[in-house]
Amino acid sequence: MNVLIVGANGQIGQHLVDVLKEEGKHTPVAFVRKEEQVKQFEDKGVEARLGNLEESVSSIKEQMSDIDAVVFTAGSGGSTGYDKTLLIDLDGAVKTVEATKASGIDRFVMVSAFQADDRDKWNEDMKPYFVAKHFADMWLMDSSLNYTVIRPGLLENEDSIGTVLASDSMTDPDSYSIPRVDVAKVIAASLDNEATYKQSFDLVTGKDNIKDALNKL
C-alpha cells in the first residue's frame, strides 16, 4: 500500500517513515507543510507532498492521488496556543477524514491520546487538547472509513522496547508510557491487520510482542 503520513515531519511520523521503509511491505508518502521538509524527505528517497491542514478539504484531497491508506499523526505541538489545537488536532483531522472519504480511500489510522475516550481521565491542564482528540476520534469512528484509533500513553524518545499492551479498557497498567518508535511500529503493524479494523485502543509498553498484542483486540 501507498501510505500517506500526515504529520510525517513529526517525531512519530519520522519513525513511521523509517519503519515502513525498513519493512518494505508498504510505501511511505510524506505529507508536510514546508518546502524544505519536502526536500529533506526526497533526499532520503521518500516521496513528499506539500499540504496545509488549515487549508480546504479539496486542497488536502489533491495530495491523496494514488494513496491506499492514510495515517494522521499531525499535531499542533506543545509550544502553540489552543487556537492551533482546535485548527490542527481537531479541524485538521476532520478535514483529513473528509478528504480521505472524498478520495475513495478506505483505510485510516488515527494517532490520538491516552484515554481520550474517557472524560473522567483527562488532565485538567490539557483539557482542550483532549477535547480536540476526543471529537476528532468520534468523527472518524462515525465515518464510513475502515478506521483504527491508537491512543498512546506518555511518549518517550527511548529506543524500541518492542513489547506493548493494547486495550480498549485499560486499568492500572504496569506502564503509562511508550517509546515513540514503538508507536510507529504499532501503526505499521496495524495497517493491514484485520484485528485492528474498526478498533480504538490505548497503547503503552507491556509484555506482548506487537503482533500478539494487536491480535488480542
Rank of each mutant, 00 (worst) to 15 (best):
V38T: 12
E22C: 07
E22Q: 15
L4H: 05
E36W: 07
G10C: 08
K34Y: 09
K25G: 04
E35V: 06
E36Q: 11
E23I: 01
V29I: 14
D18I: 00
F31E: 01
E36C: 01
T27E: 13
K39N: 14
G24W: 02
E22R: 14
L20G: 05
I12Q: 08
H15P: 08
K21D: 04
V32G: 12
I12Y: 14
L16N: 05
F31I: 01
K21R: 15
A30Y: 07
V29M: 09
K39V: 04
N9F: 06
D18T: 07
V6R: 00
E23R: 02
Q37S: 15
T27L: 07
V29Q: 10
K21H: 11
G24E: 14
L20R: 06
N9V: 03
E22L: 09
Q14P: 11
A30F: 03
H15F: 09
P28N: 07
V19I: 12
V17Y: 07
D18P: 02
K21N: 09
H26Q: 11
P28G: 03
K34Q: 15
G7W: 00
K34M: 10
E35K: 15
I12S: 01
Q11E: 15
E23N: 09
H15C: 12
K34F: 06
I5F: 12
T27R: 06
P28Y: 02
V6D: 00
F31V: 01
E35T: 09
G13V: 05
I12W: 10
R33E: 05
E22G: 04
G10T: 01
T27S: 11
V29F: 08
G10K: 06
I5G: 03
I12D: 03
G7E: 00
E23F: 00
Q37D: 15
K34S: 14
R33K: 12
A30V: 04
Q37Y: 11
D18F: 00
A8C: 03
D18E: 15
A8E: 04
E23D: 14
A30D: 12
V32K: 10
V19S: 07
G10H: 09
F31M: 06
I12E: 06
K25H: 07
L20F: 07
E35D: 12
E23T: 05
V6K: 00
L4G: 05
V32H: 08
F31Y: 08
Q14A: 07
E36H: 13
Q14T: 14
